[in-house]
Amino acid sequence: MANIEQARAAFDRFDADGDGQVTPDEFKHAMAEMGDPYVTGPMAEAVINSKDADHDGKMSFDEFWQALQG
Results as ranks from 00 to 15, higher is better:
D17V: 01
F64N: 11
E45N: 08
W65Y: 15
D15I: 00
R8W: 14
H29R: 15
I48Q: 04
T23Q: 00
D12V: 08
H55E: 10
V47S: 00
G20P: 03
V39K: 06
A7E: 08
R13K: 14
K58V: 05
A44P: 02
F61D: 04
M43S: 11
M31I: 01
E26G: 04
D54N: 15
D54F: 01
A44G: 07
G35T: 09
E26V: 05
M1S: 13
P42L: 00
A7Q: 13
V39Q: 08
V47L: 10
D54A: 01
K58W: 01
P24A: 00
N49L: 01
A2P: 04
K51I: 13
A46C: 05
T23I: 04
H55Y: 01
V22I: 13
K28F: 07
V47Q: 11
I48F: 09
Q21W: 14
A7S: 14
F14P: 07
V47K: 09
S60Q: 05
V39Y: 08
D54R: 06
D52W: 09
D36Q: 15
H55Q: 14
P24E: 11
A9Y: 09
P42S: 14
G20N: 12
M1I: 05
S50K: 10
L68D: 03
D12K: 14
F27H: 11
P42K: 04
A44D: 01
D25Q: 14
Q6M: 02
G35Q: 13
R8N: 00
D36G: 00
A32F: 05
K28Q: 15
A16Y: 02
V47Y: 07
E45I: 03
Q21A: 13
Y38M: 14
T23E: 10
M31H: 10
M31R: 08
F64H: 08
M59H: 04
A10R: 12
H29S: 13
I48W: 13
F64T: 05
W65K: 11
K58D: 03
T40N: 13
V22R: 03
L68R: 04
D19F: 06
D52M: 12
F64C: 04
E26W: 07
N3T: 01
G35M: 07
M31D: 02
A44W: 10
D54T: 02
V22T: 02
D56F: 10
D56V: 06
P37T: 04
D62H: 08
P42Q: 09
G20S: 00
A46Q: 13
A53R: 14
G70W: 01
